[in-house]
Design a protein around this nucleic acid. Sequence first.
DNA 1: TTTACAAATCGGAACCATTCCGATATAATG
DNA 2: CATTATATCGGAATGGTTCCGATTTGTAAA
Lengths: 137, 137
Amino acid sequence: MDVQRAIQLLQHEGYKVTKPRENMLQYFELEDGYRTAKDFMAFTEGNYESMSFDTVYRNLHLYHYLGILEATELDGEKHFRMNCMSDHHHHFICKDCGGTKKIPICPMDEIEKILTNYEIEGHKLEVYGVCPLCKSA
Amino acid sequence: MDVQRAIQLLQHEGYKVTKPRENMLQYFELEDGYRTAKDFMAFTEGNYESMSFDTVYRNLHLYHYLGILEATELDGEKHFRMNCMSDHHHHFICKDCGGTKKIPICPMDEIEKILTNYEIEGHKLEVYGVCPLCKSA
DNA sequence: TTTACAAATCGGAACCATTCCGATATAATG
DNA sequence: CATTATATCGGAATGGTTCCGATTTGTAAA
């Protein structure tokens, strides 16, 4: 997912395309890993005119709802990153830099066989640790 | 893990065995699923003499650190349950009642093969939904 | 058993991420 | 350009969690 496609999606769904929204999309397009609302706010200080936390959170939720961002929870803070969207996969997440690496394995097929009569609404598979780059630094 | 074994562990590690700590252990032994600090506080109202949030959180962390409780994050609140400890497994978690069902599948062996050079510190595999009991209710 | 002290508890204040709110500004439409 | 629903803003409120100084309590030693 890139900025342009996200903007098209906003328009198509009847949401307005505003400066704050564009700024947020640009930020998450450039960042590699999971980032928080605070990360973004800190970034705006030096780059865009500053923006209300309310606006940031509202749009994070909107982007998550629209599938533009994917979300996870680390140390009591919500983290977001651009959604790759194409193929279903999971992530290794680096605790130091927030960077991710795709894990193309998902055991849900087997799990569904076990959970007969259960209504499955979602699942999470994440691996945490330190990436090679942060390890050597 | 049962109350008695948890108390032995506390003593062995040099922690004091106090009333609040025993009450908490008893609560989590009887409960089936994931429970929050607030859940426990609500329970104490009618059962034990009430207890400070500080104490509850401090001991929840201690129990998690000692492996007495396992933890997860649901809707911005930390949830805890007694640790089964014996065999490595994951959980289906019911969004309604917090109850769990074991999932004896773990894809970490395969994943470790992919993540060479990565320092793996932990992983999470959880399935969310509604259990048969809550579904029919 | 009594003493002594480190460790644990308590209640309330503080913290921090997140959300709510009323007032203002702005993108989209005709 | 005028209209209007939608979005933004700043500041106040919320809710889960943690911190703090004062007090209490297990536990080990005398």
